[in-house]
Design a protein around this nucleic acid. Sequence first.
RNA 1: UGGGGCGUCGCCAAAUGGUAAGGCAGCGGCCUUUGGAGCCGCCAUUUGCAGGUUCGAGUCCUGCCGCCCCAGCCA
Length: 567
Amino acid sequence: MSDSETRGSAGRGDDFIRRIVREDLASGKHQRVVTRWPPEPNGYLHIGHAKAIWLNFGIAAEFGGRCHLRFDDTNPAAESSEFVAAQQADLRWLGYDWGEHLHFASDHFEALYQFALELVRRGRAFVCDLSPEEILERRGTLTEAGSESPFRERSRDENLDIFEQMRAGAFEPGSRVLRAKISMASPVLTMRDPALYRIVAARHHRSGADWPIYPLYDFAHCLSDAIEGVTHSLCTMEFVDHRPLYDWILAALDLPEPRPRQIEFNPLRLTHTVLSKRWCRELIERGHVEGWDDPRMPTLAGLRRRGVPPEAIRALCAGVGVTRREEATTQLARLEFEVRTLLNQSAPRRLGVLRPLKLVIENYPEGQSEEVELANNPEDPAAGTRHTGFGRELYIERDDFAETPPKKFYRLSPGSEVRLRGAYLITCTEVVKNAAGEVSEVRARYDPESRGGSAPDGRRVRGTLHWVSAQHALPATVRLFDRLFLAEDPLATAPGEDFTKHLNPESCVVVEDARVEPALAAFERGACFQLERLGYFCVDLDSKPGRLRLNRTVTLRDTWAKIAARS
RNA sequence: UGGGGCGUCGCCAAAUGGUAAGGCAGCGGCCUUUGGAGCCGCCAUUUGCAGGUUCGAGUCCUGCCGCCCCAGCCA
């Protein structure tokens, strides 16, 4: 990863967390930094996760430490090994490596159980026989204290005995729970004698049927951090209220110092999209998108299929920075900016026509054709050149011709001269229309002296058009993607409405009969390239030889669209 | 409403008592064989509001206002 990328397009490569880490290293509190990224394997990773990944792995790398990948698999009912595999694949694609430090909370189940026993022995936890409903009733409210469980003062030995029976599988799910003995009067709801262990009758994807009881997040997380030697436990802002409990458990067990420290930061939020698992699932189930890897989805799988380079996602994370402003929402345009920046440097250029309009060069000999040379990437001479066929019959973009041109229209119109990129200068001589009065063909004369695109007499032409040879071009299906939602915040709806009212009806426009230059046939699935003047595209996963299928990742900046929109 | 977090340009975000960076977006212009790219310029007399302390306040104090998070045996 390059320095500028690690630091981001705008960031200074510093933030309050890096400052803390630096101080902890400088003061000698820690010899080396250990972070962890702790996903639950219960779904697909999305761009919001990318920021936490970037932060945890990035800090470890920058300070010469290590970052563990730890699957937080304490809820067997929701988790599966399929998600474990999918998430690892997404992580690798994003560019991260955890080396030998692949961990699972389930690796720590026995150690966690022993810690729980110790907590009971110390009189800091008790088995509660209340039902979930009864516990809820006694939790109190935001303003009123809760009431203590009638089982709160059970003896140490009785607690030990019942908890061991829980572990042995003697009880039904929901019948009992191990709770921390803290305070039912705490203004922090998380501290009101929180549940630590519950009984779950579900097969665990790794431990199978070994355990009838499972630790809850608050218990498992801080202790897993401690067990693995994590120094800085970075999580998003919604866990601020959990920090007192994180610290309480580690202290109650007298764990050696220095203990892991939880530090919260703001999550990545994007406009025009929805990042919660629930809403993403709903989009799929209601048929608004085709699946988790639909190119309009904010999932890493979707972004990958869309053609978004992982470097662009990392650059976005670095660019938006790390603060504690939870509501900070990044504009989608910023992601597009990072994508364009990356692809402008790296994507090879090709020619393709989305909505073909036939162009006949009247003075070009029938039956003749030739090869013209085009730069693969004007930004990168090392990318070399290629040759592509040119002939009497071509296709140009419909939008590039206007019978009555608006002001400042530099493209083709009757009598105007333009350049066909890399080929010749042509002058429009005639417009052919069909019975419906639509332009069906344009005729022109070319200047044989202008081969390559410039005239020997030095005359300047304003417009340069992309084109494709009718004889050589390949047909392609192209999906033009745009933002899935029209509204910045799709979830902001009036009563009685839902987010579907904000769906963009044109989020996926399918062009069935595009024509592209033959060289595109050599591109593998997933390959990214620029169709000159149109945007960045990639070869779709479902593309087949002879049935080329392309996805538009993002358009180019379109100055003309702005000018045209103004008048 | 109890607790917590947060308010600096349309968006993101620096500034750690010394006189409001930068990026995105936008707007002008230059340049151009992609109306792409690149380049130049403009874009906060003021930091939610009101007081106070100080030679000096976005930074410290007081009071208000606003937004967000928390009442799973989810994570």
